[in-house]
Design a protein around this nucleic acid. Structure first.
Length: 271
DNA sequence: CTATGGACCTGAATGC
DNA sequence: TGCATTCAGGTCCATA
């Protein structure tokens, strides 16, 4: 489900409301992708200082340690003082003095991981391989060009790999490549400086537009209070196979790369 | 080191 | 109607 915009929308929906809260308990449902890494009861009494985002991870900074949350493909968070009894797919309830943070995740590709510090243990391992944040000043055309120059894989797959730049998933990779006029199958290292500069700008633009629209609700994404996203209505190519390109009218094509679908306009993205 | 494919898991949509 | 197959917003890991 969630790429950077959806994770950021989720973060904004509860960060200020949970800040300063004291943890009163943690109820766990079925196992998620990784074990929590601590006995749930040991979290009781700790305070949530702030909520940050790194790539598609949310980091709950506690007064002692950090809780890392990933939404996987189907994860969704709620935060409220009154929640219904946990259902079949509600796999974690972090109860605090200011409300309960509930992780709902039917496919269970998501995770809740504790670490003594953001660079320690499993959390440290997960975070250490991440690329540059696309919406922060460290994301620059020249360094992006240099990074892509070392990769011979298809540009779409390099974007999804998340080691050059983070947060770009299947929807926004397709959209950014369309906006930059680049075919998803081009090998990353073959892109010229000007084209990488276009892609750099397109990634930032697409992600910012998506955040402004509340993310994309394809089937079940919603923010922490249930609000839906609307970016999918603006999508130029994603999910539009056979429909006319919004720019030139040519039917959008769909192709497989790895196990993922790529959508592109064969006319606007010639090479 | 890089590139590729399988693995994890459930539910909805599609096809016979 | 029933059952099998395919696909879905992610990303780690083993293999070549």
């Amino acid at each position: 489900m969630p790429e950077l915009p959806e994770v950021e929308i989720t973060r904004r929906g509860f960060a200020s409301r949970i800040a300063g809260a004291r943890i009163e308990g943690l109820r766990l449902g079925q196992p998620l992708r990784w074990p929590l890494g601590i006995v749930a009861d040991e979290l009781v009494g700790r305070t949530v200082v702030q909520v940050r985002r790194r790539g598609k991870y949310l980091l709950l900074d506690l007064d002692q340690g950090v809780l890392l949350v990933h939404l996987g493909m189907s994860g969704r968070l709620r935060f409220d003082t009154m929640l219904p009894p946990p259902g079949r797919h509600d796999h974690a309830d972090l109860q605090t003095t200011q409300g309960t943070l509930r992780l709902h995740d039917p496919r269970r590709f998501g995770a809740l991981v504790w670490a003594a510090a953001a660079d320690a243990g499993m959390a440290g391992k997960l975070l250490s391989t991440l690329g540059v944040e696309p919406l922060e000043p460290g994301f620059q055309p020249e360094s992006f060009y240099q990074a892509l120059g070392r990769r011979s894989a298809a540009i779409k797959q390099v974007l999804l790999a998340g080691d050059c730049v983070v947060g770009v998933g299947n929807i926004y990779a397709c959209e950014a490549l369309f906006q930059a006029g680049i075919r998803p199958t081009v090998r990353a290292a073959r892109l010229s400086r000007p084209r990488v500069a276009r892609l750099h700008a397109a990634i930032r633009d697409v992600l910012q537009q998506a955040i402004a629209r509340g993310g994309s609700t394809l089937r079940d994404f919603a923010g922490v209070t249930g609000e839906l996203g609307y970016f999918q209505l603006d999508a130029a190519v994603y999910g539009r196979e056979g429909l006319p390109c919004k720019r030139c009218g040519t039917p959008i094509r769909k192709t497989a790369q790895g196990a993922r679908s790529s959508y592109f306009c064969p006319c606007c993205q010639r090479f």
